Simulated assay, not measured.
Amino acid sequence: MYRLLIAFLVGFTLTTNAQELRCNVVVNTELSGNQNLPVFNTLQKQLREFVNNTKWTNRVYGPQETVECNFYINVTEYSGDAFKASLQVQSSRPVYGSTYYSPVYNFNDKDFTFRYVEFQNLIYNENQYESNLISVIAFHVYMVLGLDADTFELNGGDEFLKQAQTILNYSQQGGAKGWKIEDGNQSRFVLIDNLMSPTFKEYRSVLYDYHRNGLDLMQENVTKSKENIAKAIEEFAAMNRRRPNSFLLRTFFDAKSDEIEQIFSDGPNVEITDLVSTLNRVAPTYSSKWRNIKF
C-alpha cells in the first residue's frame, strides 16, 4: 500500500506516442534448443512492429491513453516453419493523478501453434482468416483494448470484445487449438464466450467500479477509494453463486491479487469483514494473500 500511495503523490507523465498500444513483444526460445537462430530475432522484431504500428481501431487515442501491454512468446518447439509455443499477455492502465499502472489483463495462452517463414508479411484483416499467428495476436490485442476500455466506461469495450469474438469465429476454420468449445475450459473460446455472457455480467461492471470509482479516486480520498474497491470486489459474490470457481474469476485475480493485498494491508482503516469473506469464497487459491488484509 505504501508504494501505491507514493505513486499517487507523483504527477502522471505524458508521452508523445498516440498509438493505441505501447507493447513490448518478446520471443523467448530457451526451451526450443535452437535459441541462436536469426529467424527468432526477425519474428520478434516483426511482431513488435505489427502490434505497435497496426491501426486497430477508429478511435483517436491521446498520448495519455496509450495502453501498456506485454506479449511474451515462449517457443518450446521449432521445426521448419512450424512453431509450438505459449503466449503470456499482460496489460495495465494508468491510475488518475499518479505514475502507478494497475494490472488489468493477465492471460496465459498455452495453445499457441503457428507457421512462420522469416520476413513474411504480417497483415491483419478484420473479417478474414490469414494465419493462426495473426489471429492469436489480434485476438489478444482486442482483449487488451476491450478490457482497458471497460475500466474507463461501463461496458466501454463492447466494440473491441465483439471484434475478438469475430476473430474467434473465423479462426476456427484454421484447425488450431484454442478456438473451439472442445479445447478446454481455459481457452480463448471460453474466455470471450464468458465475457460476453449475461451469466458473468458482474465481471465487466467490477472492472469499471474497481478502477474508475476506486483507484482513480485514490489521490482525492484514500478511504473512499478503498471502500469503493471493496464494494466492487463484493459484486463477484453473485457471479460466484451462479458459476463457482469460474475461469473469469481466476483471470481477474491472476492480475489483481497482489494489488488487492497491497491496498488493504495498510491504513487508513475501512470495514473489511465482508471483503475478506467474499475473497475467500471467490478466490480461495489466494487465501494466503487475503490473510494479510488488516485495514
Rank of each mutant, 00 (worst) to 15 (best):
residue 2 Y to D: 15
residue 4 L to C: 09
residue 6 I to N: 08
residue 8 F to N: 13
residue 8 F to E: 09
residue 9 L to W: 04
residue 9 L to N: 11
residue 10 V to D: 07
residue 12 F to T: 09
residue 14 L to F: 13
residue 16 T to A: 14
residue 19 Q to M: 09
residue 20 E to I: 12
residue 21 L to T: 11
residue 29 T to Y: 06
residue 29 T to F: 05
residue 29 T to C: 11
residue 30 E to L: 07
residue 30 E to T: 08
residue 32 S to L: 05
residue 33 G to M: 10
residue 34 N to V: 10
residue 35 Q to K: 11
residue 36 N to H: 13
residue 38 P to D: 07
residue 41 N to D: 12
residue 43 L to W: 08
residue 43 L to R: 03
residue 48 R to P: 02
residue 51 V to H: 03
residue 51 V to L: 00
residue 53 N to S: 09
residue 54 T to M: 08
residue 54 T to H: 10
residue 55 K to H: 14
residue 57 T to M: 06
residue 59 R to N: 10
residue 59 R to W: 10
residue 59 R to S: 09
residue 62 G to N: 11
residue 65 E to R: 06
residue 66 T to L: 05
residue 72 Y to S: 08
residue 74 N to T: 12
residue 76 T to R: 04
residue 78 Y to K: 04
residue 79 S to Q: 11
residue 80 G to R: 06
residue 82 A to C: 10
residue 82 A to M: 13
residue 82 A to Q: 14
residue 91 S to W: 10
residue 98 S to E: 02
residue 99 T to L: 01
residue 100 Y to N: 02
residue 102 S to K: 04
residue 105 Y to I: 07
residue 107 F to V: 12
residue 110 K to D: 14
residue 111 D to G: 02
residue 114 F to V: 05
residue 116 Y to T: 03
residue 119 F to D: 11
residue 121 N to C: 03
residue 122 L to G: 01
residue 122 L to D: 02
residue 129 Y to I: 03
residue 136 V to S: 12
residue 137 I to R: 03
residue 138 A to N: 05
residue 146 G to M: 07
residue 146 G to K: 06
residue 147 L to V: 02
residue 147 L to C: 00
residue 153 E to G: 01
residue 154 L to G: 00
residue 156 G to V: 03
residue 156 G to K: 03
residue 157 G to D: 02
residue 158 D to V: 12
residue 162 K to R: 14
residue 163 Q to E: 13
residue 164 A to T: 11
residue 165 Q to I: 03
residue 166 T to I: 13
residue 168 L to I: 09
residue 168 L to G: 02
residue 169 N to A: 08
residue 169 N to P: 00
residue 173 Q to T: 10
residue 173 Q to L: 04
residue 173 Q to N: 03
residue 174 G to P: 06
residue 176 A to H: 06
residue 176 A to V: 08
residue 177 K to C: 11
residue 177 K to G: 15
residue 178 G to K: 00
residue 181 I to R: 07
residue 184 G to Y: 03
residue 185 N to L: 09
residue 185 N to M: 07
residue 188 R to L: 04
residue 189 F to E: 02
residue 190 V to S: 03
residue 195 L to S: 05
residue 200 F to P: 08
residue 206 V to T: 02
residue 206 V to Q: 00
residue 206 V to P: 00
residue 206 V to R: 00
residue 207 L to W: 02
residue 207 L to K: 00
residue 210 Y to V: 04
residue 210 Y to I: 05
residue 211 H to C: 06
residue 211 H to V: 09
residue 219 Q to I: 13
residue 220 E to P: 01
residue 222 V to Y: 00
residue 225 S to C: 04
residue 228 N to G: 07
residue 229 I to M: 13
residue 235 E to W: 07
residue 235 E to D: 10
residue 238 A to R: 08
residue 241 R to H: 06
residue 241 R to Q: 14
residue 246 S to H: 08
residue 246 S to V: 05
residue 250 R to E: 15
residue 251 T to I: 14
residue 252 F to K: 11
residue 252 F to I: 14
residue 254 D to A: 08
residue 266 D to W: 11
residue 267 G to R: 09
residue 273 T to E: 15
residue 275 L to F: 12
residue 279 L to R: 06
residue 282 V to E: 02
residue 284 P to R: 05
residue 287 S to L: 01
residue 287 S to W: 01
residue 289 K to T: 07
residue 290 W to F: 07
